[in-house]
Simulated assay, not measured.
Amino acid sequence: MKRTWLTLTSIFVLLSFVSCSENHFREDKVFAGGLYVKKVDLNKGKQIYTEFCMPCHGVDGDGKGVAAKAMKVPPRDFTAGVFKFGEVVAGELPHDKHLYKILEKGLHGTAMLPWDLTEQQMYQVVQYIKTFAPQVWEGKDKKLGEQIVVSKNPYGPAHKQAAIEAGKKVYHGEAACWSCHKAYVPKAELAKLADMSVSDITDDAYQIKLQETEWGFKNIPPDFTWHSVRSAETVEELFVRLSAGVGGTAMPSWKGTITDEQIWALSHYVKYLMDLKDTPERKAFMKGLK
C-alpha cells in the first residue's frame, strides 16, 4: 500500500511539473509598439522554441544551447535584446515581420536555416523570444524602430555598369568600407579614391579586419567575393541592409549619412563583388589588385 501511495504521489508531482511547464506564463504581456500578447500564445511560443530553437539558442535564450559549441558562427543571444538584421536603423527595435523573414529565409553562411512555420507559429515564437529581454521589449513605453523605406532605384538595367562604377567610388571613398572589409582596387586607385598618398596605404587595406560586437566576441566582416552575405542576396536587399546597418556590430546605418542614390550605387557594387564568388573571373580580379 505504501509503495502504491508513493507511486501515485510521484505521478501527481510529475503531472504537476508538466502542467506548470506547459503553462509557464500566467499573465498576458504588452510589448514594444503597444502589442498585446495573450498568455496562451506565449506558452505556445515556448513549446515551439523548445522544439526548434532551444538546441542552439539555449534554455535561457543566451545562445548557449548544447549545439552551440560546434558552430563557427555563435547563435544569437536573445537576452541582450539586440538584433542584427532588422529593417530599421541599427540599435532600434525591429518589427515582427523583420524577424519572420529570418525565420522564413534563414541566414546565409550560418546554422540558422529556414523554418517551415505558419505565420501564427512565427508570431508565437517571436513573442516568446522577446521574454528573454523584458528590459528591452516589455512595456507600453517601448518603441519600435522606423521602417526603412526602399526608395526608387535610380539605376535601370541599361545603367548597371554606371551604378557599379559609382558604387566603387562610394565604397573606397565616402563610405570607406574597405577600412573594415577590404579594398578591391589597386593601391594607386585606392589612394586616389580615398584621398590618400600611396605610401600611406599598407597591405592591411586588402585584409578583412576583426570588429568588436555587443555580444563580447569579435565579428568578421565579409569578403564580398568569398563569404556569404547573411541577410541579403539582391540589390534591393542590400539597399535595406546598407540603409539599416547591422545591429550590435561596427556596421553602421548609412541612411542619412550618404544619399539614397549613393546607397543604391553601393548596393550595385557589392552585388557585383558577390557575383564573382565561385567564378573563373574572381581569380583574375583578385590578381589585378596586386
Score class of each variant (00 low, 15 high):
17 F>H: 04
216 G>C: 03
135 Q>E: 14
36 Y>T: 13
227 H>D: 15
214 E>C: 07
19 S>I: 03
175 A>W: 07
240 V>M: 03
146 E>H: 10
277 K>C: 08
85 F>K: 02
163 A>F: 04
6 L>A: 10
277 K>Q: 15
215 W>I: 07
71 M>S: 13
3 R>T: 15
165 E>D: 15
200 D>N: 11
58 G>S: 06
244 A>C: 10
171 Y>S: 00
260 D>C: 05
243 S>Q: 04
152 K>R: 12
247 G>N: 03
171 Y>N: 00
146 E>D: 12
120 Q>L: 06
245 G>F: 02
50 T>Q: 14
194 A>L: 04
86 G>C: 03
140 K>C: 01
126 V>W: 01
102 I>N: 07
242 L>Q: 01
121 Q>V: 05
63 G>Y: 07
274 M>Y: 13
4 T>K: 10
203 D>Q: 11
143 K>Q: 14
214 E>A: 10
131 T>E: 07
57 H>G: 02
98 H>F: 11
83 F>D: 01
179 S>F: 11
193 L>Q: 12
72 K>V: 14
109 G>V: 03
211 Q>W: 11
263 I>L: 02
140 K>L: 12
230 R>P: 12
53 C>H: 00
80 A>H: 11
259 T>R: 02
180 C>Y: 04
281 E>R: 09
32 A>K: 04
126 V>Y: 03
136 V>M: 07
128 Y>C: 04
185 V>T: 00
277 K>T: 05
221 P>Y: 13
182 K>G: 02
190 L>S: 00
52 F>T: 15
130 K>M: 04
58 G>P: 01
167 G>M: 03
279 T>M: 10
28 D>K: 05
126 V>I: 15
275 D>H: 11
258 I>R: 08
43 N>I: 09
207 Q>M: 13
160 K>N: 08
235 V>W: 08
122 M>L: 03
100 Y>N: 09
108 H>C: 04
268 H>M: 03
45 G>A: 09
272 Y>L: 00
164 I>K: 05
105 K>A: 06
117 L>R: 07
27 E>T: 12
63 G>W: 02
102 I>F: 05
206 Y>T: 05
46 K>A: 04
248 G>Y: 06
266 L>S: 00
195 D>N: 15
17 F>E: 08
44 K>L: 15
75 P>C: 08
253 S>W: 05
23 N>T: 14
255 K>D: 04
267 S>C: 05
88 V>K: 03
237 E>D: 07
15 L>W: 11
162 A>W: 00
278 D>E: 14
128 Y>M: 09
20 C>A: 11
251 M>F: 05
161 Q>R: 13
146 E>T: 14
158 A>P: 00
237 E>F: 05
214 E>P: 04
286 M>P: 08
